[in-house]
Design a protein around this nucleic acid. Structure first.
Length: 744
DNA sequence: GTCGCGCCTTCGAGC
DNA sequence: AAGGCGCGAC
């Protein structure tokens, strides 16, 4: 091709090509055909995607032809903002880029095309565009009800097991009918029966669960040539981030759109695949070249994030996995400081050790927002929070869903869902007695069976409550609730979208939701918190902005705004809660840390049973995924890495001795300082910092054990006391009443 | 019939 | 540590 002058002069004004390595640049500018970027940790993966988008736009591909799929809303927002800042205002076709998560992209397609497409229908019932999205809690309730209808013994058939079997089937794109056909044994036939009922229940309620969003969308794209062609026309370029974590349904969505033009670019790292348990199919990335013959593969191994010891440590660890495709990892950021491992006596000492290490980083000038504490289980955050609070260090927990999991918040949202979708029995059943209006379990059973016999919704059954032997007084409260709901529902079609905040605030007031929330509180402070949470839902609704509508659609109504708000709430991810501007230490699960980076990182609880987790380590594949999880954690760190374990830990209410994690033996001592007893940041024996006045040799009296002598101090909080009659006991003076009888 | 308390079990990562 | 269940009180 003849070099065009324009290209040469434009180089100067192409900020998106600045500072790229040769391989990155190849990936950004690659043309013609499918591209797989195997990107090791810190190798500039996000950079490649955003800059590739900019490059394509500059090359004349209008932004509205480009679709980028990510795993979190936060990643989507950031990517879009980055592209916006890199592409000049003057560039034609720079607007209209779609960056979205798989789930919200699917929800959008289903609302737009689902009603018209027979392929999106289930069991002969067309999908309605105003469907509700059930979160796992809602699907759990619907599932339990389905199991009850069949009469399954709950003790023999744990809900969680059935739920995951159905979820797995959905990820394989099997509807209840498909699954029923494929059953091979008794267990699967029982699950199939539940699945059939559960599917029917969701259809009746005009609701989709998370898996349905992908399943229905994938089936629609696969089986409906009209919709597929329209999307292929719309999106001529597809990019997928974190490709190693896509499941079969997600693969189908991306593939259906990309298979026509084959201008697909996927980016991922098999060594960071940590979601096999929710259906992620690592063969999507390993077999990309089979799905797309002639694909170009570019490996990015150079790490621009972490210093040498950290990269070496991660590399040594991941080499223990057998199911992988090796790639060399390297960094030129120098050796850096050696990561440190410390085993502390118990989890409180561990938390304090971690906090002290963070304080050392802070003393070097590292801001709090550049620090993170990672753990395998969310339950481990508690002691860390306590330790941070004690030192008045600001912190945030990356649990985007935490707020929406609060009971009073869920109740408020259930009101909104009932108003938005009259068929949503699950939401209605939740709020029937919020605030208390004397409708109990017995009445609800009657209403449910009325709904079942009449084949109608719970709401319709409630309208006929007087016919099924429910007490007069109760019928009256039911009617009162139905009236409130109907009154609010009548506003949806006639008022404009801008009214949402006021609408929710009025509902909260008129339905008495603050009072109901306060009644849940264990004390005054808790009651006030819950009241505030309900108000916060109204605030969030007021701040909600509908995504821009297509130009030809009429003005958005209050109903559109409400449904959009509920959808945005249903699809929040934990990672969405991370706000780097908050200036706080971030606490999160190892899973949630994927894709993030911090100067200082502490990973706690590196113990057998916790990391690797007992439930995962039963299979070799599970153990390898646990190893990848630690690999992901280690590679989040730019400079100062701290690994910790506790010698004893209280779990499930019991204190147990722990065993060192298998993974520790796989970390070479050359790249890991194991802090010896005397070098640990030790609180236990620090003079003057004991939590009690006792010293060795004192004579003490306990109400329970009588008189004894202090034998030794066990850490900062505990004593070993030899009693005259009761033998040697470990006591915590903060709990056990002990008085000093004689000094040492 | 509804409500509140205490006992019992169970305990992973998340869109 | 938190939710599900059964029992007794109103």
């Amino acid at each position: 091709m003849v070099p065009r002058l324009a290209t040469v002069t434009m180089d100067v004004t192409r900020p998106w090509l600045d500072g790229l390595t040769q391989s990155q640049s190849l990936a950004v500018t690659h043309e013609g055909g499918p591209l797989l970027v195997l990107a090791g940790p810190g190798s500039g993966k996000t950079r490649v995607i955003t800059r590739r988008i900019c490059h394509r736009i500059a090359q004349g591909v209008p932004a509205w032809h480009i679709l980028a799929l990510t795993f979190t809303n936060k990643a989507a927002r950031e990517m879009k903002a980055r592209v916006d800042s890199l592409v000049d205002e003057g560039v034609p076709g720079r607007r209209g880029l779609v960056v979205s998560t798989f789930h919200s992209f699917s929800a959008g397609l289903l609302r737009r095309y689902g009603a018209e497409s027979p392929a999106a229908a289930l069991g002969g019932t067309a999908l309605r565009p105003d469907f509700t999205i059930f979160d796992s809690d809602d699907s759990h309730s619907a599932l339990k009800r389905a199991m009850k209808e069949i009469g399954l013994e709950r003790s023999q058939w744990p809900v969680a097991g059935i739920a995951s079997a159905i979820s797995e089937a959905k990820n394989r794109l099997l509807t209840a009918a498909d699954y029923t056909e494929s059953t091979r044994d008794f267990r699967e036939r029982v699950i199939a029966k539940v699945y059939v009922h559960y599917e029917r229940s969701l259809v009746r309620q005009n609701a989709l669960d998370f898996d349905d969003l992908l399943l229905r969308c994938a089936r629609m794209l696969r089986n409906d040539p009209a919709v597929r062609t329209e999307l292929q026309r719309r999106f001529t370029e597809v990019l997928v981030d974190e490709y190693q974590d896509t499941n079969h349904a997600q693969f189908t969505v991306a593939h259906a759109i990309a298979c026509e033009h084959k201008t697909i670019c996927v980016v991922g790292d098999p060594d960071q695949s940590i979601y096999a348990w929710r259906g992620a199919d690592i063969s999507n990335i390993l077999e990309f070249e089979e799905h797309y013959p002639g694909a170009t593969v570019i490996a990015l191994g150079e790490n621009f994030r972490s210093t040498g010891h950290i990269v070496a440590l991660a590399d040594a660890l991941i080499r223990h996995n057998t199911q992988r495709r090796h790639k060399d990892l390297s960094t030129n950021l120098g050796e850096g400081i050696r990561p440190r491992f410390a085993r502390l006596s118990e989890e409180i000492a561990e938390a304090k050790h971690v906090v002290a290490e963070l304080e050392r980083s802070r003393d070097l000038g590292v801001p709090w927002k550049e620090m993170a504490i990672l753990y395998r289980m969310n339950a481990l955050s508690r002691n860390l929070e306590d330790a941070l609070r004690q030192k008045a260090i600001p912190y945030v927990i990356a649990r985007g869903t935490a707020f929406f999991d609060r009971r009073e918040v869920r109740d408020t949202l259930a009101y909104l869902r009932t108003i938005a979708n009259p068929l949503d029995d699950t939401a209605l059943a939740r709020i029937v007695n919020v605030p208390h209006r004397g409708i109990g379990a017995t009445s609800m059973e009657k209403l449910h069976s009325l709904a079942t016999t009449r084949l109608c919704s719970l709401a319709e059954a409630m309208a006929g409550a007087h016919t099924c032997g429910i007490a007069k007084r109760t019928v009256k409260s039911i009617d009162g609730l139905l009236t409130v709901i109907a009154r609010f529902r009548s506003e949806l079609a006639v008022k404009p979208a801008s009214n949402l905040g006021a609408f929710v605030a009025r509902l909260v007031a008129e339905a008495g939701l603050e009072r109901a929330a306060a009644a849940l509180g264990s004390d005054d402070e808790d009651a006030e918190d819950r009241r505030a949470n309900v108000q916060e839902v109204a605030n969030a609704a007021a701040q909600y902005e509908l995504p821009e509508l297509s130009p030809d659609s009429p003005d958005a109504t209050l109903g559109d705004a409400l449904r959009g708000f509920l959808e945005s709430v249903a699809l929040v991810a934990d990672a969405d809660a991370i706000d780097p501007e908050r200036g706080a230490v971030t606490l999160m699960s190892l899973h949630a840390s994927k894709g993030l980076e911090y100067d200082t990182v502490a990973i706690v609880g590196i113990e057998e049973g916790l990391l690797p987790h007992t439930r995962a380590a039963r299979s070799p594949a599970g153990l390898e995924e646990e190893r990848r999880l630690l690999f992901v954690g280690i590679t989040r760190c730019k400079r100062a890495l701290h690994l910790t374990a506790a010698a004893s830990r209280a779990m499930q209410g019991l204190r147990m001795s722990t065993i060192a994690s298998t993974f520790l033996r796989e970390l070479p001592p050359a790249h890991l300082d194991e802090l010896a007893e005397e070098h640990r940041i030790e609180y236990d024996e620090a003079p003057g910092r004991r939590a009690h006045p006792f010293v060795v040799g004192m004579t003490v009296r306990s109400a329970q054990f009588g008189i004894g002598r202090v034998e030794s101090l066990e850490g900062r909080r505990a004593l070993l006391v030899r009693f005259r009659t009761a033998g040697v006991r470990t006591l915590y003076p903060e709990f056990a009443k002990l008085e000093i009888i004689a000094p040492a």
